[in-house]
C-alpha cells in the first residue's frame, strides 16, 4: 500500500463542535492514493460533518487536515484553490437547475480551471457518453430521473480530475431501482484509480467496493479496518450493535 509518498488525505485528531455540541471528537484517518474508504455510522455520528471539514466548508476546532501532505486547515490557505482539487457529490445531487447537463458539467472546468469551452465540452461529452447520458447533454436537470441526475453530478465532480472524491450518501435520495446505476459508476471510478472517501448507508456496496471501512460513533472512530473484516466480524460491541440494526 505505502508507496513512500504522503497519503492523499490525512486527518490528525480533528475536532469540530457546533456550540456545545461536539460533532467530531478527535478523528484521525488517512486515505491513500487509489484507496476507497467508506464511512459508516448512524445519522448524527459525524460522517457528513467530516466530509464538510475536508472540503473546508466547515471550520475545525482543533487538529489538522492534510491534502497530499500540505496542511489545508491552516487559515492562510486559500479554500477555493483547495476545493478545486477535491470533487464532491451530495445526497440531493445539487445540480444547477438553470443550466443544461453539459453546462453543469463544464462550469468548473471553464471558470475555475480555465479550460477552453470546446475542450471542456468535448471531455464532458466523452464522459457523459461512456455512462450512456451523451444524448442528455442539452437536457435540463429536472427532465432527468434521480439516478441520471446523480450520475451527472458525479461526472460534474470528476470531470476536472480531482485528487480526491468525496461522496456524501449519494444513493440515499434515490429509488431502490436507481441505486444500481449510480453504484456502477462509482465502481467504474474505483477501477480507473480514483481516491474516494464516501459516507454511505449501503453496507453491501461498502463491502464490495471499499478497501477500508471506518465506523464512526458519536464523533469518534470506533473501529476501522479492511471492509470485509469489519463488516463480517466486527470486534467492537458498538459496531456489532450498529451492523445488527442495518444489515438484514
Amino acid at each position: 500500500m505505502s508507496d513512500g509518498t504522503a497519503p492523499v488525505l490525512e486527518l490528525r485528531d480533528v475536532r469540530c463542535a457546533f456550540g456545545d455540541h461536539e460533532v467530531l471528537r478527535g478523528v484521525s484517518l488517512a486515505v491513500r492514493r487509489h484507496e476507497v474508504v467508506a464511512l459508516i455510522g448512524a445519522s448524527g455520528s459525524g460522517k457528513s460533518t467530516l466530509l464538510r471539514t475536508v472540503n473546508l466548508l466547515e471550520h475545525i476546532d482543533d487538529g489538522q487536515i492534510l491534502l497530499a501532505g500540505a496542511d489545508i486547515s491552516d487559515p492562510r490557505v486559500d479554500g477555493d484553490r483547495v476545493r478545486a482539487r477535491i470533487g464532491t457529490v451530495f445526497q440531493a445531487y445539487n445540480l444547477f437547475p438553470h443550466l443544461s447537463v453539459l453546462d453543469n458539467v463544464t462550469l468548473a472546468a471553464r471558470l475555475v480551471h480555465k479550460v477552453p469551452r470546446p475542450t471542456a465540452e468535448a471531455r464532458a461529452l466523452d464522459l457523459l457518453s461512456t455512462i450512456g447520458l451523451g444524448s442528455k447533454a442539452k437536457a435540463f436537470p429536472d427532465t432527468l430521473s434521480g439516478g441520471q441526475q446523480q450520475r451527472v453530478a458525479i461526472v460534474r465532480a470528476v470531470v476536472t480530475e480531482p485528487e480526491l472524491l468525496l461522496l456524501d450518501e449519494i444513493t440515499s435520495a434515490l429509488d431502490p431501482e436507481l441505486v444500481g446505476e449510480v453504484l456502477d459508476l462509482v465502481r467504474r471510478l474505483k477501477d480507473d484509480g480514483a481516491t474516494i472517501l464516501m459516507a454511505t448507508h449501503e453496507m453491501a456496496f461498502a463491502r464490495e467496493v471499499a478497501d477500508r471501512v471506518v465506523f464512526l460513533d458519536a464523533g469518534s472512530i470506533c473501529e476501522e479496518g479492511p471492509a470485509r473484516r469489519v463488516l463480517a466480524t466486527p470486534s467492537e460491541p458498538r459496531t456489532r450493535e450498529f451492523l445488527a440494526r442495518v444489515l438484514p
Binding site: 485528531d13 475536532r15 461536539e22 471528537r25 476546532d61 482543533d62 487538529g63 486547515s73 487559515p75
Partner: peptide
Amino acid sequence: HAPSGLELDRRAYRRRQ
C-alpha cells in the same frame, strides 16, 4: 478538551486577520 498549540496559533492568526 484543551486546544493544541497548533489550534491556538490558528485562532491567534484569525484574530489578527
